[in-house]
């Protein structure tokens, strides 16, 4: 029997997810032994035509990281969907839109204008913008279109499973690969991570008071963080109560608050709302003015509560007006 065929692809993301694959260390040899990697542009040279040449459904599994921002990404996503039996959204960007998804706070024009005329490192008095089609002596060159907003993978194609995280924890990846190889897969649409929030595996949970009341917000650089005590109890915006577990709490173990890269549990529709609600509920003050002042101390609320998830929440994006 021939080995299952696997692919990896990289859309709008930082590349950290590719690192996660390499982070399998020796275990990657087992993966390579168990599957044929037929598509991995990051590691080997593949062209679009190589994918087009595949039969529909030829790849058994494709791990796709990154959000969708350009017309080319959209096109290849559809192509990969056609050629693959099991599409796994790999990492926060693909799962929920990720950090690139914060681009949805601005319109496409605002981003282009900033990046090509206003950015510190740009001198562009002519206001030259990238064109989708440019005529040169040799003919026409094309660039992918920069789409109006960032989408998570499942907003573009059907996704079978999700491997969350920024990047996905190695243990979850290993489990996922094993599940694919053994064929013992959960129902379609499942996020391949425990469905409980991070507090359950947090080493500091016992130090969290039963009657936690938030009186102030601190940023990590502003305080000497106690290494044992619940980070919420120290005034830090730790999103552990709202975020899926399965990562082993490396951030908390590194004395930094959870920023929510694994996203919500299956029961929560809007990650940002649920995180905001839990903090709002825990304010000690009942006085509207004091609460307003406290809320104002949260620097960059969207970036704090929806750091990895803006395109997949109800906020979604800034409208073009």
């Amino acid at each position: 029997m021939s080995k299952p065929k696997a692919g990896f692809n990289w859309f709008a993301s930082c590349g950290g997810c590719e690192e996660a694959v390499v982070d399998l260390h020796e275990a990657i040899l087992d993966v390579v032994a168990a599957v044929d990697i037929v598509f991995w542009p990051c590691a080997m040279d593949f062209k679009k035509d190589d994918v087009r040449a595949m039969r529909d459904g030829e790849m058994d599994v494709c791990f796709i990281n990154g959000a969708i921002r350009t017309s080319e990404e959209e096109e290849i996503a559809h192509l990969l969907r056609r050629k693959t039996k099991i599409v796994i959204a790999f990492g926060s960007c693909s799962h929920m839109g990720g950090i690139p998804g914060l681009g949805n706070l601005f319109t496409r024009d605002e981003i282009l204008e900033h990046d090509f005329t206003q950015s510190f490192s740009v001198v562009n008095p002519e206001k030259t913008y990238p064109q989708e089609v440019t005529k040169v002596p040799e003919g026409e060159v094309e660039l992918p279109r920069f789409l109006d907003y960032v989408r998570s993978l499942n907003q573009v194609i059907d996704v079978d499973y999700y491997l969350p995280g920024c990047p996905p924890p190695v243990a979850l990846l290993r489990n996922a690969v094993q599940a694919v190889l053994s064929g013992e897969l959960p129902p379609r649409g499942t996020v391949l991570a425990p469905d409980k929030a991070l507090c359950q595996e947090c080493p500091r949970l016992d130090s969290k008071p039963d009657d936690l009341a938030i009186t102030e917000f601190k940023r990590p650089q502003e305080i000497i963080i106690d290494e044992e005590k619940c980070l919420l109890a120290q005034g830090l915006l730790c999103l552990g109560p709202a975020t899926r577990s399965g990562c082993g709490a490396p951030c908390v173990n590194g004395n930094m608050p959870c920023t929510g890269c694994l996203g919500p549990t299956s029961r929560v529709k809007d990650y940002g709302l649920s995180t905001m609600t839990v903090f709002a509920s825990l304010f000690e003050s009942k006085d509207e003015k004091e609460i307003d002042e406290l809320v104002d101390k949260i620097v960059d609320p969207v970036g704090s509560f929806n750091r990895y998830s803006l395109p997949s929440t109800f906020l979604h994006r800034k409208a073009n007006v």
Binding site: C199, Q200, P241, S281
Partner: peptide, 12 residues
């Protein structure tokens, strides 16, 4: 089965 024991609800 799915409660993480985060205690957020208790003081509420």
């Amino acid at each position: 089965e799915v409660c993480s024991g985060c205690k957020s609800c208790i003081p509420m």
